[in-house]
């Protein structure tokens, strides 16, 4: 197969090229209505046009600020609380039902509440972002802390590890892959809710510009913003993944992929 000769990035580039060509041809050949899906060239044209405006870069900065602030708060809170709750069985038992109840409460349920409390400013969107991404981290860290190998745990106990040593050498190495997964999930969930908040609440940012493009019927610009949002997400994922494989270089899932 061609896969044997082409390197992975070559195959990936071929995949992207396929997508671009399909989107270019489908409206031109009349397979989809060009009013609904403009060809690649028009979308990219609109994107280039947007990139030339100051408005775009200001909005991008606002989106990233909201995203990062929300993510940072929820990751710190999630890891700290998760490690504490996860390593004390009593705390775990007391909080389990509350966590289980609050976690599935959809963050968008808070949109009306956020609007009433904070108006359309950044705080509204931040509330959604933190609520949604905090649980991602917390739940992962909790299940990581529960996954500690019982033999290793008993060994640590018989060697009378101090609680701190126990956390550093036993709980954290077990939890780290979970926490990194949590970080990765939280990073994309935070981006989702940042853009959602901007789109629905009207907090300044990329999402708001998308909403404006939608209501003024600028379809190509709308797609351009969707592409921006997607690329933003790709960058976020790539950074989170890079961080993950750097932090978890010792973990079998990372090692296997590298050796191959």
């Amino acid at each position: 197969m061609a896969g044997r000769r082409l390197p992975a990035w070559g195959l990936g580039a071929a995949g992207v090229a396929t997508l671009l060509v399909v989107v270019e041809l489908a409206p031109r050949l009349g397979i989809v209505d060009a009013r609904f899906l403009p060809p690649t060239s028009q979308i990219l044209g609109a994107l280039a046009d947007r990139l030339g405006t100051g408005e775009f870069w200001v909005a991008l900065g606002q989106t990233l600020t909201t995203w990062f602030t929300g993510l940072a708060i929820s990751v710190v809170a999630g890891v700290v609380l998760g490690m504490i709750i996860g390593s004390v069985p009593l705390l775990r038992a007391v909080t389990a039902s509350t966590v289980e109840f609050l976690r599935p409460v959809p963050s968008v349920a808070l949109i009306p509440v956020a609007i009433l409390l904070y108006g359309t400013g950044m705080a509204s969107t931040l509330l959604l972002v933190i609520y949604a991404s905090f649980w991602q981290v917390l739940v992962q860290v909790l299940s990581g802390a529960a996954d500690v190998d019982p033999v290793a745990s008993d060994t640590a106990r018989s060697y009378r590890f101090s609680p701190l040593t126990r956390i550093r050498t036993l709980v954290w190495p077990t939890t780290a892959p979970y926490a990194m997964t949590g970080l990765r999930l939280a990073a994309s969930v935070a981006l989702i809710l940042t853009v959602t908040g901007e789109l629905l609440i009207g907090t300044p940012g990329i999402g708001k510009l998308l909403g404006v493009a939608q209501s003024s019927g600028a379809v190509a610009s709308m797609y351009a913003y969707v592409v921006v949002a997607g690329l933003l997400g790709v960058v976020v994922n790539a950074v989170a993944r890079g961080l993950e494989s750097r932090v978890l270089f010792w973990h079998p899932s990372v090692r296997g992929e590298r050796a191959a």
């Binding site: 989702i192 853009v195 999402g207 913003y225 969707v226 997607g230 690329l231 994922n237």
Partner: peptide, 9 residues
């Protein structure tokens, strides 16, 4: 890319 697009968008 598709995964990274926030679905509400």
């Amino acid at each position: 890319f598709f995964r990274a697009i926030p679905p509400p968008v």
